[in-house]
Design a protein around this nucleic acid. Structure first.
Lengths: 252, 252
DNA sequence: TCAGTTTCGTGAACGGCGTTAACTGTAAAC
DNA sequence: GTTTACAGTTAACGCCGTTCACGAAACTGA
């Protein structure tokens, strides 16, 4: 994995740059509608295919690398867009971030499929990668910030199914949860439920298993998000958030 | 597409059988973890790859054929399981069908991915195939039957966004909607929203983008379904349906 | 500065993939 | 009983991931 620390030697810097180029070329291929292949990526960099094996051990690892980096880049975009609202307004930020997430999934469906629709078996080490997801961290953090302000209800630990309790206490999902006190870990249950809902609409729309007109109108997405205002303690913000949402949806 | 009508001539019968074998071999390959390829399917039938071109025009068409048939077969399974409750108890049937759908997605993730996570561009003719989805028809029909009994609220046509109104009046999604009166088409909006929620959890779980313990416990799925009892007018049935759900989830 | 080593790249090759083209029996159709 | 349509073959093309043996360049330390 690149970007672990500041590059020291000249060679390491070169290597960094090569990794970046791998990701850049891969992204270009995806956006062009071509399919991601070792050979195509290599050719796009002016290399032969075997050369890439100096950087990734297999095709799957290349996919994982690209997925991770594209997720990171995309999250940075949403976060930047969301940052037009101040830090102490996480509700507005969440509304923006979710909408940008959807827009990203719709305009770059192949990137979305790579990052979010890639099957991950439960046993492989590839599981660990899911835990690293940047977007996951970002959304969990936003939810935490919202709770700090609005104090919406969440299940107490002893209300939770024992297995779920275990899962929120020692999370495998991407969750910036270290700073969430043990007794507040029920929040992660709310996060999972909300993420499942968001993931549902966005995947449905991005993969096209949905009436194109419904996608175009954005109503399904809009309705799903509005349903989540209540559980997140945002009833009093309904009007304001709705406005932000519609603003974002109407964006060119 | 096979199974259009009863086979007449001997040759047509043979051809039918070949199509069935294509699907059977494909399903076996998927369940074995091998990947679906023209050559592997052909080899599994004792044929060479080019021979398959007498039956499908391309690899994509083979995938579409298999996806359609697997969806049909799976739906038949769920429907059969649901049929242990009488026809006039569609709420119970829905609970069973949803749970079986999930179980199918978990035990046969590759089949699920083929049928439900296959990207479909908006413009291609492949879009039409989505409309044919057997499972879609089955679930829409169940929802209609539930409404006939419980009369849960749904948006009137003039409450709907114009684009959505158009979409529910002339649906592109798989929806056995011919027998739904025009003025009740708002029901399809409820269907879309519910389907989006169900699709979300099941896809999340089936693709493994989720804590394995959460999957194993079934709590995320359970909670999602329970949340939909209210909107479907099933508040008075809550206890009964919950029992059925837990029964199904505990199934060996 | 120079030998030794590590790193990064190449070309050739293997088996598997989707797809096309030319060809051959054989079963149905008139 | 001839003709025709169909269902299959083999051979080949250009892609793919992956491995291996090899060379050239870059860093390393005395």
């Amino acid at each position: 994995m690149p970007h672990l620390r500041a590059p020291a030697t000249r060679r390491e810097r070169q290597r960094e740059a090569t990794y970046d180029e791998i990701v850049a070329v891969s992204a270009r291929l995806l956006d062009e509608g071509a399919d991601l292949s070792l050979r195509a990526v290599a050719a796009g960099m002016g290399l032969t295919a075997p050369a890439l094996y100096r950087y990734v051990a297999s095709y799957q690892q290349l996919v994982d690398l690209v997925a991770f980096e594209l997720d990171k880049a995309a999250t940075a975009e949403w976060a930047e867009a969301a940052a037009r609202f101040p830090q102490d307004d996480p509700a507005a930020r969440l509304a923006v971030a979710c909408t940008r997430f959807r827009q990203w999934a719709l305009t770059k469906p192949r990137r979305f499929a790579l990052v979010f629709a890639n099957p991950v078996a439960a046993d492989t080490e590839r599981r660990d990668l899911v835990t690293l997801s940047t977007s996951g961290h970002y959304f969990t953090d936003l939810l935490w910030q919202i709770w700090e302000i609005y104090r919406f209800p969440y299940p107490a630990l002893d209300e939770l199914d024992p297995v779920i309790r275990e899962a929120v206490l020692d999370p495998l999902i991407p969750a910036k949860s270290d700073h969430i006190p043990t007794e507040d870990r029920g929040l992660l249950w709310v996060y999972m439920r909300a993420w499942s809902a968001l993931y549902g609409v966005v995947t449905l729309e991005s993969t096209g298993h949905c009436d194109p007109r419904v996608i175009e109108s954005g109503q399904l997405f809009r309705a799903t998000l509005l349903d989540w205002l209540e559980p997140l303690g945002l009833h009093d913000e309904r009007e304001r958030i709705t406005t932000i949402l519609d603003e974002e949806l109407a964006r060119p």
